[in-house]
């Protein structure tokens, strides 16, 4: 966790300025209110002051404590607006990294096609504005990097509607936490990864190294690439471990008892079954598992590539 007093991103100073400005003003009023209460309790206690005054009010005072808060809150609004406008105006030269969120994974896609998943995290160069379009196909998530003061919901949108976006510019090298901040179901608290900020030369070296291997693998084994990028490994292992869903290892050709609409039946895992399971995950649930898998929009080719890879893992 990096909690920096001088937060390591460009508009974070504006956020923190507004924060501390409001904090000091609030603290002043809180101390004043509390102090006055304690003072009154002592000074005007029934023992000390048995005869109260019959004071009804004071118009002058009322006007003062209407106008002073009005001025202060307008300042609060103004300082908040300043930071907000910076947050919403992406610099023209920003580098675009696509963010996909799903239950319960992150995927970061670089301009050259390189994809990074939850385990790998988001790697960015320092002192470079990064523009992040935020896409989700299942439920609402929220992209949150506390150290950079960056947050925006990842909302699934209708076809044709614009995706949400955010941006940041890291000004310090290091690793920073990245959270999902909007409740998205069972493993919401596991939807955590890191932002790795590298110097520009380091970043370029990293990018080259990662991209070569990834793009090669993607061409050779599209199924595995898809399974990684769609986040399937969050719930399905490839080594036989039982996670939230059945493991892919030895799955194809296996005999399973599934529950369909409340009734149990025995099936053999074949292409047709896998296809149904991917497209309509709630239909046939393998006994002993919960109907938790979200349907992921995929083309027929993509589904076939995944089924091919599951076959490979079963051999």
């Amino acid at each position: 966790m990096n909690v920096n007093y001088n937060p390591p991103s460009v508009f974070a100073q504006d956020v923190d300025f507004a924060f501390w400005f409001i904090a000091y003003v609030s603290l002043f009023f809180l101390v004043f209110i509390t102090g006055f209460i304690i003072f009154s309790i002592i000074k005007y206690n029934r023992k000390n002051n048995p005869v109260p005054s019959n004071l009804h009010g004071n118009t002058g005072l009322e006007i003062v404590w209407t106008i002073v808060p009005t001025i202060l809150v307008m300042l609060f609004f103004y300082f908040g607006l300043q930071g907000f406008l910076k947050m919403r105006n992406v610099p023209k030269d920003a580098m675009e990294i696509k963010v996909d969120a799903g239950m319960w994974w992150w995927k970061f896609t670089y301009p050259n096609g390189l994809e990074q998943n939850t385990a790998q995290g988001l790697t960015v160069p320092a002192d470079t504005p990064i523009y992040l379009p935020l896409h989700s196909d299942d439920v609402v998530h929220s992209f949150y990097i506390p150290a950079f003061r960056v947050k925006m919901d990842v909302v699934p949108k209708a076809a044709g509607a614009e995706d949400n976006y955010t941006w940041f510019e890291a000004s310090q090298i290091g690793d920073f936490d990245l959270f999902c901040a909007e409740y998205c179901g069972l493993n919401h608290a596991q939807m955590i990864t890191k932002v790795h900020v590298l110097t520009k030369p380091d970043y370029l070296a990293w990018l080259e190294e990662q991209s070569a291997g990834f793009l090669k693998q993607k061409a050779e084994n599209p199924g595995q690439a898809l399974i990684t990028s769609k986040g399937c490994f969050a719930c399905h292992s490839s080594d036989g471990t039982k996670l939230i869903g059945p493991s892919f290892k030895g799955l194809f050709g296996k005999t399973e008892i599934v529950v369909t609409g409340g009734e149990e039946r025995e099936i053999t895992v074949d292409e047709a079954y896998l296809k149904t399971s991917i497209m309509e995950p709630g239909k046939d649930i393998v006994k002993g598992f919960q109907p938790l898998m979200p349907p992921l929009p995929m083309t027929a080719d993509e589904v076939m590539a995944i089924i091919d890879h599951i076959k490979e893992l079963s051999e």
Partner: peptide
Amino acid sequence: GSLSTDIH
């Protein structure tokens, strides 16, 4: 209520 601090 203040925009930038709320986002955080």
